[in-house]
Every structure is written in C-alpha cells, then in structure tokens.
C-alpha cells in the first residue's frame, strides 16, 4: 500500500514539477532537481526509509530499460539524417567518451577521492542502466554511480546552453552530439528544447556513447592504468 502511494506520489510530484518548469524555464528549476528534492523533503518529514520508498518507485526505474529500447523508433525514423551525419557523430562521440573517462578519473584522483568513488565517477556520462553495469564491473558502487549520472544530467542541462553560446556551436548536429555524449537522457531532453533534429541526434549520440564506453572503459583502464 505504502509502495503504491510512493509510486503515485512520485508521478504527481514529477508532473507538477514539470508543469512549473514549463511556465518558468530556468535550468535550476529542472524537474530532475526539484522533484527529487521535494520527495527527499517528504521522506525526511514522514520518516519513510528509502528502501520503503523504492519498493514502489522501482517500477519507474525499471521503465528506464523499455524506455531506452524505445529509442530505436526515433533512430529509425530519422535514419537518413543520421546516415548523412555519421562522420560527425562517430568522431564527436569517440572524442567525447574518451575525454569523459580520462578527465573524470584524473580530476577525481587529483581531488584525492577514494578508488571506489573514482570508479563510480568514471561512467558518469553514460545513460543510467548501462552506467550502473559498468560501475559494478570496474569496482564502483552502482547506486552511487546512478546518482553521479543524474548530477551529470543536471550539470549538462545547466552548462550546455552556455557552452553552445560561448563556443558558437551553431549546427544542430554538433549541438545534439554535445548534449548526448556528455549528458545522456537528461541532456537529450534539453536538446529536444532546441529542436527535434538536435534531440534526435542527441539520443543517437547517447546510445553510441553507451556502446563505445562499454567497450573502451575496460581497455582504457588497463592501458592507462586508471
């Protein structure tokens, strides 16, 4: 009963936060930030544990898998756009993914974070279900990695528009690659605010980032001794 209530509460808070964001479109009002904060406040006030909350809310997390599979449809629909821009996508994603892995490892170590946290930070640019898998394989903590992935999504939605402006990234393709490679699904949601082509390119970049990273992370860790 409590589980179902937590599930419904999450959905209601999310749609309210989304509605509020649409009327006040400021990056710091993103539902990805406001909804979890409201839920955390609620759980703290009512002394409901995260385990109890998650027993119902996990149905939403589980939906991430079919939702990721659903990306096959925009990919198919925009296949000609994608074929046309295959070069940019492959180069941008490959470059971006390598930078994501090396820079997070290097910066985290220079902040003297412990090895478990470093390993949980390495897959931060990758979409949650896959990032959690990778974190587990390289000695990180999947649940913490999931939180890092979400903070990355927020960071991306916040910084992305600034970088686009500063570096004069004018093509829809480059904008999409920038969002999808760095900030997965949350970045893709932001990219769709620019245009549907930007969003679609971003979702493709997100998927390719996940594939490439899953393949190169273990190799890079051995080669570079990360």
């Amino acid at each position: 009963m409590l589980a179902l209530a937590c599930l419904i509460l999450t959905v209601i808070i999310y749609f309210s936060a989304k509605w509020y964001y649409q009327n006040n479109p400021k990056a710091y009002l993103s539902p990805l930030l406001t909804a979890p904060l409201l839920i955390i406040a609620f759980l703290t006030l009512t002394h409901i544990s995260y385990q109890a909350y998650y027993s119902g809310a996990k149905w939403l997390s589980n939906t991430l898998q079919p939702a990721t599979i659903a990306f096959a449809f925009p990919l198919y629909k925009y296949r000609s756009t994608l074929k046309q821009h295959a070069g940019e996508i492959i180069v941008g994603v490959l470059f971006g993914s390598i930078i994501a892995i090396i820079s997070s490892d290097w910066i985290a170590k220079s902040f003297s974070l412990n090895p478990q946290l470093v390993s949980s930070l390495i897959p931060h640019s990758i979409t949650t279900p896959i990032a959690m898998d990778i974190a587990k394989n390289i000695g990180g903590i999947p649940a913490i990695a999931a939180v890092f992935v979400i903070i990355t999504g927020l960071a991306g939605a916040l910084i992305g528009p600034l970088i686009i402006k500063l570096l004069k990234i004018e093509t829809e393709v480059a904008r999409g690659i920038l969002f999808g490679t760095s900030a997965h699904g949350a970045g893709t949601a932001k990219a769709f605010e620019f245009s549907s082509v930007t969003g679609t390119i971003s979702s493709l970049a997100m998927i390719i980032t996940a594939i490439i990273s899953a393949c190169i992370i273990p190799t890079l860790i051995i080669w570079l001794g990360l």
Partner: peptide
C-alpha cells in the same frame, strides 16, 4: 526524466 527520479532520491 520521470524514470531517473527514484534513483536520484
């Protein structure tokens, strides 16, 4: 975004 929220909590 809805599906990311429980993990964020």
């Amino acid at each position: 975004l809805l599906f990311f929220i429980p993990s964020a909590v």
